[in-house]
Amino acid sequence: NKFNKEQQWATYEILNLPNLNEEQRKAFIDSLKDDPSQSANLLAEAKKLNDAQA
């Protein structure tokens, strides 16, 4: 299913963002699990935070 693929991709991407700390990473991944339909939005937020902390 589409959300499952998006969720897996977003999880992979978030795990590989270098500037997030473990707590932030875990929070994003927990949110992905809670609502896979928000995968794209959550990934965008994670990338923004990652860039802000660069």
Score class of each variant (00 low, 15 high):
Arg25Ile: 05
Glu23Met: 11
Glu23Tyr: 12
Leu32Ser: 02
Leu42Asp: 01
Leu17Asp: 00
Arg25Tyr: 03
Gln38His: 08
Asn19Thr: 03
Glu45Arg: 07
Asn19Phe: 14
Asn4Met: 05
Pro18Gln: 08
Ser39Arg: 06
Ser37Arg: 07
Lys26Ala: 11
Leu17Glu: 00
Ser37Val: 05
Thr11Phe: 15
Gln38Leu: 11
Ala54Arg: 01
Ala46Thr: 00
Leu43Thr: 04
Ala52Met: 13
Asp34Asn: 09
Arg25Trp: 02
Lys5Pro: 15
Asp51Thr: 09
Asn4Trp: 14
Asn1Pro: 03
Leu42Thr: 12
Asn41Thr: 11
Ser37Phe: 06
Ala10His: 07
Glu23Val: 12
Gln53Arg: 02
Asp30Ala: 11
Pro18Arg: 06
Asn19Pro: 00
Ile14Ser: 01
Trp9Gln: 13
Asn16Ala: 14
Lys48Thr: 09
Gln53His: 05
Leu43Ser: 03
Arg25Lys: 15
Gln24Ile: 03
Gln8Tyr: 10
Trp9Ile: 15
Asn4Ser: 07
Asn50Gly: 02
Glu13Pro: 02
Gln24Trp: 02
Ala27Asp: 08
Asn16Thr: 09
Ala10Glu: 03
Lys47Thr: 04
Glu13Asp: 04
Gln53Ile: 11
Ser37Leu: 05
Ala10Gly: 03
Leu15Trp: 08
Ile14Gln: 01
Ala27Gly: 13
Gln7Trp: 12
Asp30Arg: 10
Ala44Gly: 08
Glu6Asn: 04
Asn16Phe: 03
Asn16Ile: 08
Glu22Asn: 09
Phe28Trp: 02
Glu23Phe: 11
Phe3Trp: 06
Lys47Gln: 09
Glu45Leu: 05
Phe28Leu: 05
Ala54Asp: 09
Thr11Asn: 06
Lys5Gln: 14
Leu43Trp: 05
Glu45His: 06
Gln8Glu: 15
Ser39Val: 14
Ala40Pro: 05
Leu15Phe: 04
Gln7Arg: 03
Ala52Asn: 12
Glu6Val: 05
Pro36Met: 05
Phe3Asn: 09
Asn41Val: 09
Lys48Val: 09
Leu49Asp: 03
Leu32Arg: 00
Lys2Pro: 15
Ala52Val: 14
Ile14Pro: 01
Glu6Ile: 07
Glu23Asn: 11
Ser37His: 08
Lys2Val: 13
Asn1Thr: 04
Ala46Trp: 01
Gln24Glu: 04
Leu49Thr: 07
Glu13His: 13
